[in-house]
């Protein structure tokens, strides 16, 4: 028992709180739900994506090639890249993986919300009426098909926006940490 991942736990709690606060606010603005329900929904989908993310990580980690293994260790224990033949391609790997993580969590959150409402025995939360009117006016001259697509896509769009905002906020926090480290580290 030499090391304990307490910092990982602390960061996870911080990021979860930030994400839940932001997403609950966006759900409140864009869906016809009361405040408490929004917080509960945001909590549920964010906890779900954390759990699914960890499970994927634990399942994939033993199969990492050993040079990526060294990169992962270097990042987790020393917070920096490990300089070897692979380190130049690490940023592009991170970007590709990050892309999949973003759209993966989006899908997961949309499906998670559907599943949650099924468990709660509710029907899909309606869009706000004024927004419906707005949309109706907006698409009056367009084809019927497009209207239906927009109508069913609204929930997914709301979750996408919420996801984008919470990811940006977390990235900002990580950037602040990086800057702090670069300028104020001993």
């Amino acid at each position: 028992m030499n090391i304990v991942p307490l910092r990982a736990v602390a960061f996870q709690i911080l990021f979860l709180l930030v994400a839940i606060a932001i997403e609950a606010r966006i759900f409140r603005q864009r869906m016809n739900l009361d405040h408490k329900t929004c917080v509960q929904y945001a909590t549920t989908v964010n906890l779900l994506s954390v759990v699914v993310g960890w499970i994927i990580f634990f399942a994939a980690e033993p199969f990492l090639p050993s040079n990526l293994d060294a990169q992962l260790i270097s990042y987790m224990f020393f917070d920096q890249l490990f300089h070897d033949s692979l380190s130049s391609s690490v940023p592009s790997i991170i970007i590709v993986v990050g892309f999949f993580i973003f759209f993966g969590t989006w899908l997961l959150k949309v499906e998670g919300l559907n599943l949650l409402e099924m468990i709660l025995g509710k029907k899909k939360a309606e869009e706000k009426p004024e927004q419906l009117n707005f949309k109706f006016r907006n698409v009056r001259n367009r084809s019927q098909n497009r209207f239906i697509f927009r109508g069913t896509g609204t929930r997914a769009a709301t979750v996408l926006l919420a996801n984008a905002c919470s990811f940006s906020a977390i990235l900002l926090l990580m950037a602040i940490r990086l800057i702090e480290r670069l300028y104020y580290a001993p």
Partner: peptide, 9 residues
């Protein structure tokens, strides 16, 4: 500097 672990002993 780790963002994950602390050494406890």
């Amino acid at each position: 500097r780790s963002a994950f672990v602390v050494k406890v002993s």
